[in-house]
Design a protein around this nucleic acid. Structure first.
Length: 465
RNA sequence: GGUCCCAUCGUCUAGAGGCCUAGGACAGUAGGUUUUCAGCCUAUUAACCGGGGUUCGAAUCCCCGUGGGAUCACCA
């Protein structure tokens, strides 16, 4: 049974798109093997927890289709799935490590650690705990018994650690470069390192698929798995998404919260499809494919090592493709919902065929279609000099019995002829009179949708003094 | 700075020693369709970081350099 997991910490207001990218791989890998996809909340840093962040995160994941088989919401056989509710477990395992001489108590103050590090840095040494408390373990134990604030540190053995990464191959690191990592903090919470290892084991995770920023600390985890005598899961470190300047994707340069993209009117399917292409490609070179298809052909071995730049332009293009694929009726409903049902659905339905190929995001809709819902207040071209012409057009429009795009077009062609203007000029002026803008959906069709009365009214408004 | 990871068009990528005159997609450019803008169609610009090896042959394997990134907390 394949079991994968994502372990987000609720320190932001929502899921980061980069997290969605790795969540997608975890999800796909589990689903591909009929396994389970677990979401575990790593809320072990009380100082950084963002109120409401966890819930938003979980909601977003679900809403975009990455449904967890086990999570704090849906529960599961290894509950609880929130680390803050598993404190006694970590404490027990940390103490077990101490009992087996794999870890030790430390009562050093932050101040001492700080000055120690400053000194080390001044001497151009690697900042590393000096094991002061290890050498005075008996006294330290006394202090701990008396209830003094303390932490538990991993006793880092001296050896070289080798492990196999599915994506990056064999990696070897010397533990000389590793610190005696704190495992249990003085507030009784575990650090990330203890938390992941204990939970990944207890929750029977078979594949750890996570961002490459964890690569350097993986040896610590291996040491811990070994210290406990546990089997190390398969490990795969995927590259993280980048800004155009190649730094880690950050909110400075791009929207990073997943719901921001949804609020722009990016479809979850399109977002997932685009994210799937970050570091992976379809064997047939396809760009557009469904989540099901992705799950079927995705393989961890095919993931690219290079860190990809997140390109909102291609995402938008892809979303446009999804919009064009959506049946009109469905798209109508989506737009209606997207704008909180503020605009009449039947009117949206009439406009959808006109703008379907012109919008890339749902949020583009209003920009293009505002004039269907209210007459323009401003005109992008000064129309006042052509008043007589608009009066003339209005008169001709009144004559039309059968108000369809086709007949409107025919009549307009004649009117244009009479006007003596070039077709392009004539229609541009008319377009602005009707829509207020130089860029709009097709005119005849738009006029049909607006109706004869409304069109004539708008023309007369221009004519009025 | 130490350690680790990475390196093909501007971007996402294909490429597992000869199929490479390096392919596709986005973006760009030009043209066509046209009543604006899109869309669609056609064409087109553009890359193997550098240097050494290995080999009959290297984008592909090895080494060195360079560049980029990550990481070195009682943060994850």
């Amino acid at each position: 049974m394949i079991r994968t997991r994502i372990a987000p910490s609720p320190t932001g207001k929502d899921v980061h798109v980069g997290s969605v990218a790795t969540a997608l791989m975890n999800f796909a890998w589990a689903k591909k093997h009929r396994g389970k996809f677990v979401v575990r909340i790593e809320d072990t840093d009380q100082t950084r927890v963002v109120v409401g962040g966890e819930q938003k995160m979980l909601e977003t994941l679900e809403s975009i289709g990455l449904m967890a088989d086990e999570s704090p919401i849906v529960g599961g056989p290894f509950a609880p799935y929130r680390q803050s509710e598993r404190l006694d477990i970590y404490k027990r395992y940390a103490q077990e490590l101490v009992a087996n001489n794999k870890a030790y108590y430390c009562v050093c103050t932050p101040e001492r650690l700080d000055s120690m590090r400053k000194k080390q840095q001044a001497e151009k040494q690697m900042p590393k705990y000096d094991r002061h408390c290890l050498t005075h373990q008996a006294e330290v134990l006394e202090k701990v018994k008396k209830g003094e604030k303390h932490v538990i540190r991993l006793l880092m053995p001296e050896k070289t650690i080798s492990f196999h990464d599915i994506i990056r191959g064999d990696i070897t690191i010397d533990t000389n470069n590793l610190d005696d990592q704190v495992l249990l903090k003085s507030d009784g919470f575990p650090t990330y390192h203890l938390g992941v290892v204990v939970d990944d084991h207890l929750m029977e995770i078979t594949h750890i698929i996570r961002g490459e920023e964890w690569l350097p600390s993986t040896p610590k985890h291996i040491i811990l798995f070994e210290a406990f005598g546990w089997k190390v899961p398969e490990i795969a470190h995927v590259s993280v998404l980048r800004n155009p300047d190649r730094s880690k994707l950050s909110k400075r340069k791009n929207p990073v919260w997943t719901s921001e993209y949804i609020h722009m009117g990016i479809f979850p399917e399109a977002l997932l499809n685009y994210l799937a292409l970050m570091g992976w490609s379809h064997p047939e070179g396809k760009d557009i494919f469904s989540l099901d298809e992705y799950i079927r052909i995705f393989d961890l071995k095919d993931i690219q090592k290079t860190a990809p730049v997140f390109d909102p332009v291609k995402l938008a293009w892809m979303n446009g493709m999804y919009i064009r694929k959506t049946p009109d009726a469905k798209l109508t409903g989506q737009i209606y919902e997207f704008y909180d049902k503020k605009y009449p659905e039947d009117m949206i339905g009439k406009t959808v065929p006109l703008i379907k190929e012109r919008i890339k995001k749902l949020s583009d809709y209003f920009l293009l279609c505002e004039f269907f819902f209210r007459a323009p207040k401003m005109y992008e071209i000064d129309l006042s000099v052509k008043k007589e012409m608009f009066a003339e057009i209005a008169k001709d429009m009144e004559k039309i019995r059968d108000w369809t795009a086709d007949t409107i077009g025919k009549q307009l062609a004649q009117t244009a002829e009479k006007s003596g203007l070039k077709n392009s000029e004539f229609f541009m002026l008319l377009r602005v009179a009707i829509t207020g803008k130089k860029i709009s959906p097709p005119l005849n069709e738009s006029m049909e949708v607006l109706g004869k009365n409304e069109c004539c009214m708008r023309l007369r408004r221009v004519t009025a003094p």
